[in-house]
Design a protein around this nucleic acid. Structure first.
Lengths: 370, 370
DNA sequence: TTGTAGGCGTTATCAT
DNA sequence: ATGATAACGCCTACAA
């Protein structure tokens, strides 16, 4: 911008804002051609004499040379960057997945660009476009945010790995949410519960749909009736759990157990029950999903189906990497595990579980130390 | 992937993996030069006749043209990408900050590259290097991860905004952590507590140091002694809070109140106390920091100093944007607010707060509904 | 072992 | 109003 540095150029070393040295500077200082410098700096297999190599390395060091990846990417048609679409990073669920992705990505020098879609189609579209303009090598899409139409709008999309979707003709990493919900519900049934409600996730979420399916399947298998008003939908959040609980427990004959489709919902529910003078697990049993770090630290500690979120992230990136290198892309289904803690117990022997509020000094409030 | 499209190239429209059309394709199809196409596509002020413009636009649409930002960035020497260094995205604290950053960034079409440093110097260095090779326009560094030496190693770094640091000659966004801790501690003092402990954060964290300073200052101002063994250091985590609590409560004369330097620590501590048969707030009062969404949903609900994390993220990005445009960069200090809930109450009238375990049915266990 | 030259896709400058 | 050309920084055939 200054009139006189167009020609002064970087050779002078003058402190322009963008004064990073180019490979030509390095080559010049080492007394070699750019090609030779490049060969040394990229660790090419092309032979270079040891003395020359040393001079180039020294020059690069002295100049604080940093290769311009833009130029390199333009030429090689690959950026070693990947785009990640999640509904919301501030949701612990996705935050942990993102961590797994980033850890795996950084191991191969790849950069991760995050995008929060809020599950909104317009955001998905614009982020997708921006990511493709940046020529990311691949995409990881979590939270079932992506639809066929989004991709159709775009020629030549890079490889995509989806997290938590199935039935899509795209490589995916997921858990068996149906089976997970069956396990959670069966646990309650085996404890003796007969009226089991479900705090289900939002209608747009496939994960939510699968867990609801599993819940119903377990009920059916046990010959228990599936009452429509024992299912409340809501966000996978603290507030969602609370609000759903308000609906579930607004009746005269409330359930004795609840399958909450996320730990956040479960915690919101437990709080609500507490305010209503209902004790967990004495009056109501609650099981959550995800086994977030929190689950074992709440009072009472939450029984939860562990979903290996960090691993999901890692595997998604591993899958994408394979897609980028070879091509083989087996879908991955990770195992889940029910972690039984303190929020689940047999139902009260008596039929009306909701006889009295807080006060009642029964036995010890919760099982015991961790 | 299909065997026969390797040579089909993009001109034919065949679906090669990297078949995105270039501006030359668009120009060709519209019967104009690349320069004209560029002028239309970039919304340049340079005049273009309406019919030509239409043809270019149509061609671009037909071809599914996506500008190659690599080439553009190379030329313009700016990438509209920013790098964000955080200790760990899976920590809710940073996850929310990141969300704020990304929201603000996307409003100006900037991409966010996330990096998890785990507060390790080697990771900081390598991420920094990678980010600079990618020629990010700017950097946001959270968690006091950066030191002078890291930057010194590098010529011509782009603008940097730090989060949560002060005393560094870099534009910053932060809160008054000393004042926040004074407020939290004073709250306990005003409740009548005299033995107040502190679950402090890790020694490397400036935030932790500031909060500890505030805690001590409040004690001193109230004429209360500062006992060294009433301070336990640990990670800002559930486990950290738990372990710190073990040390704090290993003595015969435990404190009656604790300033926990994060909500996570506070929750870990509450759980530990529960296991030990100590009731919160009856036997021990606890105040946390951050006011995470969880704070109002735990049982009992956590008294906490609210830190506006989302806003911190947004402001950091806003500051960086200003740095990139004009240059003015006033440091930002955001206000905090003490949110009093259910974990703090006056100490037991009797002197030995730890007389009996669980059983004792005192008054109503917690204040009341939210 | 080293150097030369061409091109990756854009945009800015300078004609026309 | 439009077009030709150079340059951004790098890598890789190909030549020497």
């Amino acid at each position: 911008m200054a009139p006189d540095d167009a020609h002064a150029a970087h050779r002078t070393g003058g402190g322009r804002r963008d004064a990073s040295a180019t490979i030509l500077d390095v080559a010049g200082r080492a007394g070699v051609s750019a090609a030779t410098a490049s060969r040394v700096l990229t660790g090419s297999s092309h032979a270079v004499s040891p003395p020359t190599r040393r001079r180039v390395l020294a020059a690069a060091r002295d100049l604080g040379y940093l290769p311009n990846m833009l130029a390199r990417s333009l030429l090689k048609r690959e950026t070693s960057a990947v785009g990640v679409l999640v509904p919301d990073v501030s949701n612990p669920y996705y935050a942990v997945i993102l961590r797994g992705i980033e850890d795996a990505a950084s191991e191969t020098g790849r950069a991760v660009i995050v995008c929060n879609t809020d599950r909104r189609g317009d955001k998905v579209r614009s982020y997708l476009r921006a990511l493709l303009e940046r020529r990311v090598d691949g995409l990881i899409v979590a939270g079932g945010t992506i639809r066929r139409e989004h991709l159709a709008a775009v020629r030549s999309a890079p490889p995509i790995v989806v997290i938590g979707r199935h039935g899509v003709p795209l490589p995916s990493v997921r858990v068996d949410n149906v089976g997970a919900a069956v396990a959670a519900t069966r646990h309650l049934i085996e404890l003796g519960h007969r009226r089991i409600a479900c705090l289900a996730g939002p209608a747009e979420s496939l994960t939510a749909a699968d867990r609801l399916t599993g819940y119903r399947r377990a009920l059916r298998r046990a010959g228990l009736p599936a009452r429509a008003d024992d299912v409340a939908r809501g966000e996978f959040s603290l507030a969602g759990g609370r609000r759903g609980g308000e609906r579930l427990f607004a009746r005269d004959d409330p359930p004795t157990a609840v399958v909450a489709c996320s730990d956040q919902m479960a915690i919101g529910l437990v709080r609500l029950l507490h305010e209503r003078g209902l004790r967990v697990p004495d009056d109501v049993s609650v099981v959550g999903f995800d086994d977030s770090p929190l689950a074992s630290h709440t009072v009472p500690a939450l029984t939860s189906v562990a979903i290996p979120m960090y691993e999901i992230g890692r595997r998604a990136m591993a899958l994408l990497r394979r897609l980028l290198e070879d091509g083989g892309a087996e879908p991955v289904v990770l195992p889940v595990e029910l972690r039984i803690r303190e929020t689940t117990a047999p139902p009260r022997p008596c039929c009306r579980p909701r006889d009295r509020a807080a006060g009642a000094p029964g036995g010890p409030r919760v099982p015991g130390p961790a």
